[in-house]
Every structure is written in structure tokens, then in C-alpha cells.
Nucleic acid binder design. Structure first.
Lengths: 190, 190
DNA sequence: TTGAAACTATACAGACCGGTATGTATTATT
DNA sequence: AATAATACATACCGGTCTGTATAGTTTCAA
């Protein structure tokens, strides 16, 4: 066991960062939870910041995988757009849900232009691009505009559910998404 | 000057909390910025948590005032709903904008059921109620549903603009809001 | 003028933070 | 058996955090 300690440390740290917040999670707590020592941790992650960035990268990849997995079940681009809501609805159903890791990290790290802020910005850009591409495939002309709107609905639903658990925000967001998609489709034909 | 030191301390603390984040702002920094001492601060605010809660209360009142101010310019309930987007768009235009104080605070204070989380939940509930009442006045049957959707758009636009400044997210959110309101109006007559 | 209240100044306590130093045990390869 | 890599154990460093203790200063009203 403990094969690939580096990955295991990241697993533990990522979980604690997400559940307790990043600044609230000390290196000692990670070390103890992972059953290892500071020396080993600092061998793989020369600073806590490196570990934080690895955590964000891991979170991004995890969401990416969930999205691809949810999208491949649908053939129609329009249905794929709606499937994104379903993926996030599943995420929120998990009792360990505590909001969007990137929004949370951006709130914790206020320094503008810092690496954390940059990582959050990169993620949201990639997310919007994914949606915009799908919208274009669905024949929507104002694809970027629609993608931005849908992304805002999802981000808002994440925040809403984080602050008030069990509100079923994402289901309502999906309803709004359907209306906006239909409107964008209709607007394109005018 | 320094008339009503208590209020002045809160002003300074609230500004620093919002700009730098709460956990990133030490009591010493507040004391220095306010030109006072720890003893005076702790006289009025027995703990940092008290100061944080006062900051959230102040933020809530400030937004409430801005909203009422923006709403009274419109007579039509439907126009009032849209005016809310404009109020937040003005907020985002300020270079010191750094997201929603409540979303940020909820991200920083992960402890569930804590006073900070509660304050954030109370605020969002009151905000949704305000919008739902307006929607009802506009003759919309599914007022709560629409209010939730509009609130998510606004929250998402706040987060989006925080992470990527100058994206003009709130303007796009307003466009989406118009569509959703129109759809809710039409849906009511069916 | 005196005396209480408000405020300042400063030092300190105790805990926690990120990060380092030193040394040891285990394991695998050669 | 010798070597090297990996991980563990533990103690420590300087700094920062919230919060308190002690003492001196201003203000203002009776």
C-alpha cells in the first residue's frame, strides 16, 4: 500500500481542502490524515501553494471526466447541453457537496492575478467554451452568449445549493436552461 | 473626527474584509487601518467573529438600500425585476468589486450551521423573497420558481465577474432574465 | 477642579502556521 | 553485503494569529 504516495497525499489534501476550505486546512492536518510526514509531503509538493494548485488541477480533471461521461450518453447537441445540468445535479445530490471548488478558491485567495485566480479563470473559460461549442453544434448563432448564460445559471445554482442545502437549485436552473436554449434557437431563425 | 468610533471601525473592517478576504485580514491590520488600538476594537466587538457578523449585516443593509433606491425609479413590477440586474451591474462596474460578500464568506467559513453560513442563508432567502414578491405583482403564477432562476443568474454573474473581471456578465444575465420573465408571463396564461 | 469614561500605547500569552533540520527504519537493487 | 531510494519520527524555527493585561492619556461634564 501507499504505492504512489504522491497521489495519495493529493487525494487526502484535495478532500480536506474541499470540505474544510483551503486556508482552514493546515499542512499538519493533511500529513496526519494521510498518515505520512511533512518531509514526504514537501518532497512532492515544495510548498502548500503547489499542493493547492494540484488540488485545483485534480478538481478540474474530475469534473471534466464527469462531464464527458454524462455527455456521451446523448447524441443531440441540445440534449448534451441539458445533460450538463444533470451532471451537476448529481454532484449536488452528494452529501459532501460544498459548492464549486473554483468559486470557493477564488473567494479564499483574493490576490488578483495570483496563480489560484488564474486557475479559476482558466477553468471557467474552458467550461464556457465547451458549452459554446455544443451550442454552435446545435445551430445556435449567438452561441457564446447562450453559453455564458447557461454557465451563470450553473454557477448560481452551485452557490445557491452551497448556502442552502437541499434547495434543488440545479433542477430549477435546468428548467431555465431549457427556456433559454429554446429562445436562442428561435432567435437564430429570425 | 473619529466620532462614533464603533461605526468607523466597522467601516474599515468591512472594507478590508471585502477587499482582502476575511481570514486574510488580521485584527492588527484593521486596528492599524482605523488608527485605533486593539483595546478599543475589542471593547465594541468582543471577538473577531462579532465583527465579521457585523460586516455581513452592514453589507446586507448596503445592498438593500441600493436595491430599494434602484427599484423606486420603476413603477411596473416587471421593470423593477429588471432594475435589480441594473443595480448589480453598477456594483460590478466599480473597480473595487470583488464578488458577493455572502458567497465569499460562505466559501471562507466552511463550518456548516455556523453563524456566518446562517447569515448568508438568511440574506439569499430575503433576496429571493423580494424577487418573488415582485414576480407575483407582475402577475406571474410560478413566482418562486422564476425568482430562484433570476437569483441564480445574478449569483452566477457575480461569481463570473469576480473570476474574470470586465466580462460584462451581468448584462448578459439581464438578457437571460428578460427571456425568463417573458416565458413565465406566457406560461401563466396557458 | 476633580473624577469618570473613552481612548491610546505597548507588551504579552498561547496557539497555530508554513517550512526545515537531523536522524532512523525499511526496502529494493546491484 | 553494499548502496541508494523511500518514507518515517521528532524536534525545531520564525512568524502570525486572536485575545488579554497593564498603564498612561485625553476629554468633558458636574
Amino acid at each position: 500500500m501507499a504505492r504512489d504516495l504522491q497521489a495519495y497525499i493529493l487525494d487526502v489534501a484535495s478532500d480536506l481542502f474541499y470540505r474544510q476550505g483551503i486556508k482552514n486546512t493546515g499542512v499538519d492536518a493533511i500529513v496526519k490524515a494521510a498518515g505520512t510526514t511533512k518531509m514526504s509531503l514537501y518532497k512532492y509538493y515544495p510548498s502548500k501553494d503547489d499542493l493547492v494548485l494540484a488540488h485545483l488541477h485534480k478538481s478540474r480533471e474530475a469534473i471534466r471526466e464527469l462531464l464527458l461521461q454524462g455527455l456521451e450518453k446523448q447524441a443531440d447537441p441540445q440534449q448534451k447541453l441539458l445533460a450538463i445540468f444533470d451532471v451537476f445535479a448529481d454532484l449536488q445530490a452528494d452529501p459532501s457537496f460544498r459548492g464549486c471548488p473554483f468559486i470557493n478558491a477564488a473567494a479564499e485567495f483574493a490576490e488578483q492575478g495570483g496563480a489560484v485566480q488564474q486557475a479559476a479563470a482558466d477553468y471557467t473559460k474552458a467550461f464556457r467554451k465547451l458549452m459554446a461549442d455544443l451550442a454552435r453544434q446545435a445551430g445556435i448563432v449567438q452561441a457564446d452568449e447562450l453559453a455564458g448564460q447557461l454557465a451563470m445559471l450553473i454557477a448560481g445554482a452551485m452557490a445557491s445549493e452551497q448556502i442552502q442545502k437541499g434547495s434543488g437549485a440545479m433542477i430549477n436552473a435546468r428548467k431555465a436552461g431549457e427556456i433559454l436554449i429554446a429562445a436562442a434557437q428561435a432567435g437564430a431563425s429570425e
